[in-house]
Design a binder for these strands. Structure first.
Lengths: 192, 192
DNA sequence: TGTACATCAGTGAACGCGCGTTCACTGATGTAC
DNA sequence: TGTACATCAGTGAACGCGCGTTCACTGATGTAC
C-alpha cells in the first residue's frame, strides 16, 4: 500500500476494512463516516464517492459479512466428515466461529437496522447463506421445522456466547467448547 | 395525568415510558435524550435530573425490561400445566412473546452496548431472569447443558422471529405458531 | 392560621462539538489524434 | 513520441443541524415556629 499517491488505488476496499475496525472499536451505534475516513487516512468527503452515505457503506459491509460468514462455515465443513449430520454440526460451529471472531460484523448483520436489507446485493448474500443451510438440512433428510430448530440453536448459541452470557460455556477451552456445542447442536438434528 | 403542573408528579416513570416509545420508533442507534424529553413534554435538561445521562436512562430502562420479561414468562407459566416440562415450554414461549411484543426493548437488553450492564440494579434484574430459568431446568431434572440448550433455542427463535427472518414461522397464525414453537422448544428438553 | 425559609423539580438560554452534505477545486489517469 | 482534452478520484473549506452539558433561574412543596 503506497501512501503518497493522490489516487488511492483501492479506496473502496480500504474503506470497508476501516469501517469494520471502526465498528468493532466503537459499536454500530457510534459509527460515523467521518471516523471511517479518518481511519483510512482520507478526506472525510471521499467515502461519499464510493458509497453515498453511511447506510451505503454499512450495507456493502453487511453483504461482505454474509459472504465471509458462508466462507467460515465452509472452512469447518471442509475439515469435517462428509456425512450429512456431521456437515450440519460443522455448519453450526462455523456459524458460532464467525460470531465470536467478528462480533461487530455479526451484530451488524443480525441485530441492526442500519444496513438497507432491501438492497439486492445484500439480499443475495444473505439468501445464499440461508440456501446453504436449507440444502444441508435437506441432504440430511430434514424439513422446514428442522431448518428452524437448527438455525435457532446455532444463532442463539452464537448470540449469547458473543455477548458474554452463557458464562459456563464461555470459559471452556476451545476444544471442550466445540465438544459441548456439538452435543447441543445435535439435539436439533432432523429426526431420522 | 395533569398537564399544567410545574412539577410533573412522576417524571421518572414518564421518561422511561417515553424512552421506550422513542426506542421503538427510532431504534437504539438514533436514541437521544433530547427527543425523549420532547416526547415527555418536558425541557431537554429535565432528564439529567433523574438519570444523569442517556446511558443512565437506558440502564434503568433495560432493568425495567428484565422485570417485565420475567413477568411475561410468568403469565405463560401460570396458564400452563404445572408439570415441569410444560413449565419449561411455557417459559420459552413467554421469552418469545416478550421479544415480539417489545422488540426494541429486547434488542436493548440483548443486543446493545449502551446500557451499563455492570449496574447493580440491572445485574440483579438480569440475574433474576437467569435464575428463574435455571430453577425451572433443575425442577425438570436437567443440568448446565440443558440450560444452555433451552436458552439458546428460545433466544434464537425470539431473535430470528423478531427481526423477520424465519419467514415460514412468522407467517403462521398465533395458535399454529405456538404449536410449532412448542415442538421446537421440546427438542431441547433435559433428557429424561 | 400565617409567615419565613430551605429544598427540590423543572426551565430555557447558551456553549462547543462532531456529524452529514455540498461544492468549487486540483491532481492523476486514460484516450484521441 | 508528443500534445490536448475529458474523465475520474480525492481535497478541504464552508454550512447548518441536533446533540449533550452547563448554569443561573423560578415555581412548587414541605417544614419550622
Amino acid at each position: 500500500m503506497e501512501d503518497r499517491k493522490y489516487h488511492h488505488g483501492d479506496l473502496r476496499a480500504a474503506l470497508l476494512h476501516a469501517a469494520e475496525a471502526e465498528l468493532a472499536e466503537r459499536g454500530v451505534e457510534a459509527f460515523s463516516l467521518r471516523q471511517v475516513a479518518k481511519r483510512a487516512g482520507v478526506s472525510h468527503a471521499a467515502p461519499a464517492h464510493h458509497f453515498g452515505d453511511a447506510q451505503g457503506l454499512l450495507t456493502a459491509l453487511a453483504a461482505e459479512g454474509f459472504r465471509r460468514f458462508l466462507a467460515t462455515q465452509a472452512e469447518r465443513e471442509a475439515r469435517a466428515n462428509p456425512d450429512p449430520h456431521a456437515q450440519l454440526v460443522a455448519g453450526g460451529l462455523g456459524y458460532i466461529d464467525f460470531a465470536l471472531a467478528r462480533p461487530a460484523l455479526f451484530r451488524l448483520m443480525f441485530g441492526s437496522d442500519r444496513p438497507a436489507f432491501g438492497d439486492p446485493a445484500l439480499c443475495a448474500a444473505a439468501d445464499a447463506a440461508y440456501d446453504h443451510l436449507q440444502a444441508q438440512v435437506a441432504a440430511a433428510g430434514g424439513g422446514v421445522a428442522d431448518v428452524a430448530a437448527l438455525w435457532a440453536q446455532a444463532h442463539g448459541l452464537a448470540d449469547l456466547l458473543m455477548s458474554g452470557r452463557l458464562k459456563p460455556l464461555c470459559d471452556l477451552a476451545p476444544a471442550d467448547r466445540d465438544a459441548t456445542l456439538t452435543v447441543l447442536l445435535s439435539r436439533c438434528f432432523p429426526a431420522a
